[in-house]
């Protein structure tokens, strides 16, 4: 398997995007979907466990379980496991009492509260159905954060282990097949070059390999600071920031250059601290897994404008 080249990210049909809180998981998911749509694909993006933020990334009105077009060729929906159960019962099982909402809602409450893995199965199941239906070239999932994604992706096995017969059991087999096929499904992990996000990503990579059948398709390193100086330039900077030359500079411009040089010093140290974490990430992740670097955006940080900028950088990293 190691000798096979990995399926390129945009050629996969089902991509789960995860990441530690605060690393920009939703930003990357929304940008990836936008990029794929710009490539002429018909794309569905689904927010799972979201707080309704995804809509803002496309300047779109609040989203629902039923998908809506938010950009040309790009449709967005938000996961609702109860609606997913109802749809499943109706389309797949032809359960006669559908229509009477009461029992369904109660059954759902019970299933979700008491039977582990069922909520996750209804989520993964809905996404797999969307892929199987061939309505989309790509389904992008703004998935749960790193702490919860493994439970989500491992749900079909967990349910297989607990439930030996029944309709759910019949469904998990083909879902597993789809999730296990690296030509179809992939996981994209988002992190920033900081201590905890890098540690969590390395740990995630191990858990995904050991506990799920899904392939880690790539790691996005978000908010990478630009390199300010080449080696010689840094020596010049250090000389410039020494008391004598700095005074000279202050005199030349008739102002205080101190804060400006101080800010550059901060930027250099920040980048240096971060680069040690980047090295740790590169060493901790399977060398076949591509790392995609996205620059720190020094602009206002939300809305479609940002999504477009990130999509642009992501496209460059993917060689488009």
């Amino acid at each position: 398997m190691a000798t096979d080249p990995m399926t390129p990210l945009l050629d996969r049909k089902l991509v789960f995007v995860t990441g530690k809180g605060g690393t920009g998981k939703t930003t990357v998911a929304s940008a990836l979907a936008l990029l794929a749509a710009a490539q002429g694909k018909r794309v569905l993006i689904c927010e799972v466990d979201g707080k309704g933020e995804l809509a803002g990334y496309y300047e779109a009105p609040p989203m629902a379980f039923k998908e809506k077009e938010v950009q040309p060729g790009l449709f967005a929906m938000t996961m609702d496991t109860e609606a997913s159960l109802r749809e499943y019962l109706k389309l797949q099982l032809h359960i006669p009492i559908v229509g009477r909402i009461g029992p369904v809602a109660k059954a759902f409450d019970f299933l979700a509260a008491a039977a582990p893995g069922v909520r996750e199965i209804l989520t993964v199941g809905k996404l797999c159905f969307e892929v199987r239906d061939n309505k989309w070239d790509m389904v992008v999932v703004d998935a749960p954060a790193t702490g919860h994604i493994v439970g989500q992706l491992a749900a079909p096995q967990a349910v297989n282990g607990l439930v030996r017969v029944g309709l759910i059991r019949n469904q998990t087999d083909w879902m597993l097949e789809m999730l296990s096929d690296p030509a179809i499904t992939g996981l994209l992990a988002v992190c920033t070059p900081e201590e905890m996000p890098v540690s969590e990503t390395i740990e995630l990579a191990t858990r995904v390999r050991e506990e799920t059948t899904v392939e880690l398709a790539g790691v996005v390193v978000n908010r990478v600071l630009p390199e300010l100086f080449g080696r010689n330039e840094e020596a010049v900077f250090d000389a410039l920031a020494a008391p004598g030359p700095l005074e000279e500079l202050d005199g030349l411009i008739g102002g205080d250059a101190g804060p400006v040089l101080e800010a550059a010093r901060l930027a250099v140290t920040m980048r240096r601290t971060r680069s040690t974490h980047l090295e740790r990430l590169r060493e901790g992740i399977d060398p076949d897994v591509p790392l995609l670097y996205l620059p720190y955006l020094f602009t206002k940080s939300h809305g479609l404008r940002t999504t477009r900028q990130v999509a642009g950088s992501l496209g460059e990293e993917l060689g488009l």
């Binding site: 099982l93 359960i95 059954a107 017969v165 029944g166 759910i168």
Partner: peptide, 10 residues
């Protein structure tokens, strides 16, 4: 519903 989805045994 529960039986059909999860199986009697479970």
């Amino acid at each position: 519903i529960s039986d059909r989805i999860l199986g009697t045994e479970f």
